[in-house]
Simulated scan of single mutants.
Amino acid sequence: MLILLPPSEGKHAAATGEPFVLEELSFPELAPDREHVLDALAAASARPDAHAVLGVGESLAGDVARNRRLRLQPAVAAHSVYTGVLYEALGYAGMTPTQRRKADDSVVVVSALWGAVGFADRIPAYRLSMSVALPETGRLAAWWRPRLDAHLGPRADGHLVIDCRSSTYAAAWHPDPGQAVAVNVFQRRDGQLKVVSHFAKHTRGELARHLLTRRGNPPTSPEALLRVAREKWEAELLPGTPRKAHQLNIVLPEDHA
């Protein structure tokens, strides 16, 4: 089982700790690509129009300034850096040691800066979205796609890929459709199914937690994942095609809050 997550936009900056060590990150073959993006991000963050390039407001000046010295910043495990609705619902801190090891082995976060990192990889807080086009690099989703395909593809081989990423981050790597399931979340409203982004993030986090904390073997097929999801939610599975992953649709009740 491989669970793909998006990073959070907001990140927790550690107050103390040693800087990251590039060679210690998961997928070490990506080191030259990470060096490139680190340099490009530092250069973009030093520009007079840095906020426009990065698509952030002036209130995030501190984050932009930090981008210029990421190699010197304290680094901690990725599960402590990423925050927000999805990660709160996943609740890594409240897991048992065994469940945490399972999360460290099973979760990969697709990142605009790192390409992809494991849950236990030590990284600093940074500000960069996959939708950004860095000068002389281009839009990061397109830039990372062939590089992630070369290294995430082998990691996913033989595993069911449970894709909880947002569309922005899903664009950076397309797993083999035959072994991948994209997770969608809807809510019933006035008898119709509506997409609700806040609930979608929270429910994807809850699904990841359920997969990591439940007893029994992890699902190895889309149909098995559907059975696991139905332990907690109303859900349906739409079969994939040669070019599109299976779709797991989780349906929240009208009174869900």
Score class of each variant (00 low, 15 high):
G153P: 05
R71Y: 01
E9Y: 05
A14Y: 05
I250R: 06
R66T: 03
P28L: 03
E236C: 08
R189F: 07
L90R: 00
R215Q: 15
E58L: 10
D105E: 15
P6N: 10
K102A: 15
D190S: 10
S131K: 15
P177Y: 01
D39C: 08
L237D: 03
N249R: 15
A156D: 08
P74I: 08
G118Y: 09
L30E: 00
E223H: 12
M95V: 01
L238K: 14
D176T: 09
R68V: 05
A116K: 04
L225C: 09
A224H: 11
N217T: 13
W143M: 06
E206Q: 15
F119S: 14
H202K: 15
A120T: 07
D149W: 05
H256A: 13
I3Y: 07
D149P: 03
E18F: 09
V110I: 14
R214E: 10
Y92I: 12
A93N: 11
G158Q: 02
A150S: 09
E254V: 01
H79S: 11
L212K: 06
L70G: 08
E206H: 07
A42L: 13
V53G: 03
G84M: 01
T96G: 08
L54G: 03
W233Q: 00
L148D: 00
D49M: 06
K11I: 05
E206K: 12
A52S: 13
L237P: 04
G55V: 09
R230S: 09
N184K: 12
F27E: 12
L226P: 09
P218G: 10
P177G: 06
V161G: 00
G153E: 08
A78G: 06
W114H: 09
G205F: 03
A14P: 04
P218Y: 03
E234K: 12
R122Y: 05
R243F: 12
V109P: 06
A40T: 01
A150Q: 11
A46D: 14
T168F: 09
W233I: 05
N184T: 14
S221N: 02
G158F: 02
W114Q: 03
R68K: 12
E58S: 13
A156P: 00
L60C: 02
L252R: 01
H246G: 06
T137G: 00
E18R: 13
D39E: 15
S167F: 11
T203M: 04
R139S: 10
R122L: 07
E88G: 11
G55A: 06
T83K: 09
A61Y: 04
L134W: 07
T83A: 10
R127I: 02
L226Q: 08
V228I: 11
G138A: 07
A224K: 10
L193N: 08
G84C: 04
R204C: 01
R188M: 11
E29W: 05
P222Q: 08
S166H: 05
H210M: 14
R145I: 00
L226Y: 07
D157I: 00
R127S: 00
W173E: 00
A172F: 12
L41E: 04
T98H: 12
L238N: 12
A103P: 02
L152R: 02
S131W: 00
Q187C: 01
L70F: 04
A40M: 03
T168L: 14
S106K: 09
P175E: 02
A50N: 00
E236N: 11
R47A: 15
D176S: 12
A75W: 00
E18A: 15
A93F: 00
A15V: 10
V107R: 01
